[in-house]
Every structure is written in C-alpha cells, then in structure tokens.
Measured scan of single mutants.
Amino acid sequence: TRVETATETAWISLVTALHLVLGLSAVLGLLLLRKQFPAHYRRLRHALW
C-alpha cells in the first residue's frame, strides 16, 4: 500500500506540473501573439469573449 501511495503522489505532482507548464505556455503564447500580431490578438479576443 505504501508503494501505491508514493505512485499516487508522483502522479499528482506530475499532473500539477503539467498543468502549470501548460498554463504558463498559454500565457506566454498569448503575450507573444499580442506583441507580434495585435490585429490577430484582438480578433481572437472577440471570438473568445
């Protein structure tokens, strides 16, 4: 049972790390898009919101 708990903890930390990386890359991508293609960014924002 101890090994299972350790594996679960590892999976949870892995998933958390993946979510963090995905969130950060999404934010960075949006910032880059905003900087380089303001028109595209505006259109995207209108489409999303």
Rank of each mutant, 00 (worst) to 15 (best):
T1W: 09
T1A: 13
T1G: 08
T1Y: 15
R2A: 13
R2L: 15
R2F: 14
V3D: 03
V3A: 04
V3W: 05
E4R: 11
T5N: 09
T5R: 06
A6Y: 07
A6V: 08
A6Q: 11
T7E: 10
T7S: 15
E8L: 04
E8H: 07
E8W: 01
E8K: 07
E8Q: 00
E8F: 03
T9F: 11
T9N: 06
A10R: 04
A10G: 11
W11K: 00
W11H: 09
W11F: 12
W11D: 08
W11G: 02
W11R: 01
W11M: 09
W11S: 00
W11I: 13
I12W: 01
I12M: 03
S13I: 15
S13Y: 10
S13C: 15
S13T: 15
L14R: 01
V15S: 01
V15P: 02
T16P: 01
L18W: 04
L18F: 15
H19P: 00
H19D: 02
H19F: 14
H19W: 14
L20E: 07
L20R: 04
L20Q: 02
V21N: 01
V21Y: 01
L22H: 01
L22A: 15
G23W: 07
G23T: 13
L24Y: 03
L24Q: 00
L24E: 03
S25T: 13
S25L: 07
A26M: 11
A26D: 04
A26T: 12
V27I: 14
V27C: 11
L28V: 02
L28N: 04
L28R: 01
L28C: 05
G29E: 09
G29Y: 05
G29W: 08
G29Q: 02
L30M: 12
L30W: 02
L30F: 14
L31H: 04
L32P: 02
L32H: 08
L32W: 11
L32Y: 11
L33W: 10
L33Q: 03
L33E: 04
L33T: 03
R34Q: 05
R34C: 12
R34I: 14
R34G: 09
K35S: 09
K35M: 09
K35V: 10
Q36C: 05
Q36R: 03
Q36T: 15
Q36P: 05
Q36K: 01
F37P: 02
F37V: 05
P38L: 00
P38D: 02
P38I: 02
A39W: 11
H40N: 09
H40L: 06
H40F: 04
R42T: 11
R42G: 12
R43N: 11
L44P: 09
L44G: 02
L44H: 02
L44Q: 05
L44A: 10
R45K: 12
R45D: 06
R45G: 06
H46L: 03
A47K: 12
A47N: 10
A47G: 09
L48K: 07
W49F: 06
W49M: 00
W49N: 07
